[in-house]
Design a protein around this nucleic acid. Sequence first.
DNA 1: TATGGTGGG
Length: 891
Amino acid sequence: MSKNTDRRKSYSSEDSSDEERHRDLKERDEFSKRLKQRDERNTRNVAASSEKRGADAAKRLRLETADREKLLPELRKQSRRQYLEKRKEDKVAELEADIRDDEYLFPEAEITERERRDREHKKHLLQIAKDHEKARELERVQRYRMPKDVKKGEMEEYVEVDERERMPHSEQKKWEAEQLASAVYGFGSKDAKERAAQQQEYELLLDEQIDFVEALQMAGTKKKDDKPELTEAQRKKMTIEETQKSLPIYPFKEDLIAAIQAHNILIIEGETGSGKTTQIPQYLYEAGFTNEGKKIGCTQPRRVAAMSVAARVAEEMAVKLGNEVGYSIRFEDCTSERTVIKYMTDGTLHREFLSEPDLASYAVMIIDEAHERTLHTDILFGLVKDIARFRKDLKLLISSATLDAEKFSDFFDKAPIFRIPGRRYPVDIFYTKAPEADYIDACVVSVLQIHATQPLGDILVFLTGQEEIEACQEMLQDRVKRLGSKLKELLILPIYANLPSDMQAKIFEPTPPNARKVILATNIAETSLTIDNIIYVIDPGFAKQNNFNSRTGMETLLVVPISKASANQRAGRAGRVAPGKCFRLYTAWAYNNELEDNTVPEIQRINLGNAVLMLKTLGIHDLLHFDFLDPPPHQTLILALEQLYALGALNHHGELTKLGRRMAEFPVDPMMAKMLLASEKYKCSEEIVSIAAMLSVNGAIFYRPKDKIIHADTARKNFNHRHGDHLSLMQVYNQWVESDYSTQWCYENFIQYRSMKRARDVREQLVGLMQRVEIEMVSGESDTTNVRKAITAGYFYHVARLSKSGNYKTVKHNQDVMIHPNSALFEDLPRWLLYHELVFTTKEFMRSVIEIESKWLLEVAPHYYKPKELEDPTNKKMPKTVGRAEMTANS
DNA sequence: TATGGTGGG
């Protein structure tokens, strides 16, 4: 408590004399210069080492740009699907042209091994495309004249001959060939006669089919003929003790406790369903690890997991949740002084470090699901490893899935690995014989194929986003309608994070008898939620991924191929309740040669502003040499430091300033923290806090379903504010408050109730923190100038100006950017814009913008902007001194 | 002349 009051005192004594300020600014400039020099040096080094490669890349880029420009008009004219269909037809010709160009531009002798492999693969694809066309032709003829009483022998012969014709020849295809040799034509284990019959029955229904090859099985620990998982009712009859004893971890109990007693750090390798998350803390509690009044902590990547696991363990231990067993997540601390087993999210522990940097109140810390590599777990690794060195009484358990255990062990000074078997059924993996050009279409065909030929059981399809899911849903519904009553009922259900909760809940309703559910999901179904009764998984092999480019400060949200680890995680979703099947819409060759082993960990892909501020607050100065399991790009760290410096959170020694310490109180990005603090000066903290809360829920405010786009868009336009999106968001929030937080109001205005509730939670938390840093909550006058100035004080880094050509260019990087079509200012073209973020999806978009005046930049960030930079090229008449005069007047 | 994956504090 006394610590807090001390801090408060120091906050309010922040005024400094002009001299000091002047000196400070000068030092900042120097610091900035040094950082830039180092940055430039780095860039030069990289450039030098790849000079030759650079020239080639430029050549290639020119080629790609030319290609894109050629295609663009076509892309605009046609829908994506039509375009892809056309591409399918042109595939052979296109591939041939591509290979020809490639060989012409890059002679065999000059290319790298990787490029040679790429080229081989292209040739392989060409061969397949050619074969595929031929085979389809053949198949069509064959089917057409296939007599009704086709003999078994004939059918098999046709299959065999066809199969041999398509056999690959080149070296790369050897692996596939081996698999093919033992493979079965079409689906699974049907014999030829059955297939022939089925073929006839369904060829009327399915005008198109995809050929799959069974390649391998993902082994489970349960056999195919094991009894299916117990039903909920049966499970309830089991006593808690019986359930505990049935878990795979149970036989290892004594060994595990002994291992933990013997070692300070232990890696626990266990598949899902082994019971490690619920049982290990209980074992340790029984073994007396908490006897000295210290807790057992266990982190989870997700809130729901932390809550539900805590509830389960409290039940098993027959205590009230929040007493001996509790959980702690953002907005909700369900623990007490009696709590000895505490589940929490990794982010919560991360923030707990700020008040307890040595984890003194914990006897054991378990980092669960470490293989997911969230930003927070990655940072925790470094922190926790450091603590373990001097706190010999602390036990550290890192629990992870199979693949990464060795890597974790190496990182934690060769910590021993304790293996626990999981509980899962085997999953048969199928690959396509040839790549599919249009994977949405392929998904639809595969779903129908499964529905027509496979025993009942639900299907899970992985797609990349809302748009694809809606397109796929429409196509499927259309096809099913046309097929009429020939097939059993097929329920088509979408699921993605932005879907309203009531529609999300539908996927958990039990499937009616004699029907089948198809769930069209984004990556949300890969880890975040589990759906029972999934037997079949269709995996096109793509996902949207966020990448941060520290050079331009832009995020890219693009569809990329998934990793092998991710593909296996998806496949595993089929084997939870019974043996399953996973259909991958790519070739086995692609799986082996094109997919990376692991997804790039988050820490290497995102802006680290907040993380860096937090590490600085913990007193870690040399971030470039911090012990990361996988270090983030050097440049991302530099940029984060540079931004913190520009915001005034770091001094020229790279040390945290008073302002920086205040900023670190807020669980938001540094720029937003600065904005919150600046609201004090501009007397608009109420407004700014609302805006910050709304921005924090990440654009999931407005719901825009495909079938009601017009309604949704008009509803949205009602909220538009002429000065920009931040203010529109504020209006939404204020009107929601006026409606008394009504659900109905949200529904009528196409606004996501869930997001609004979250914004309210965030807002309440922020208000609490504002009091902590002693900023009074006040509301400004109706004029929005002060609100926008406060925003500018935080986001002066994010400014773009209208150029003569009518495009926007960012001030710092002179990069072409556009206003996002969602924006209130989409049709206006204010001269100066401030953007909340820069995201490349289909174009370089500024998402959430407000109109500002350039002179404000000199007012809020005189150390960062020079008046000359902000001169208006379109208005030469304006005397140059105006900007400077205003600046001095204001400072 | 257009439009967002998933978590977390």
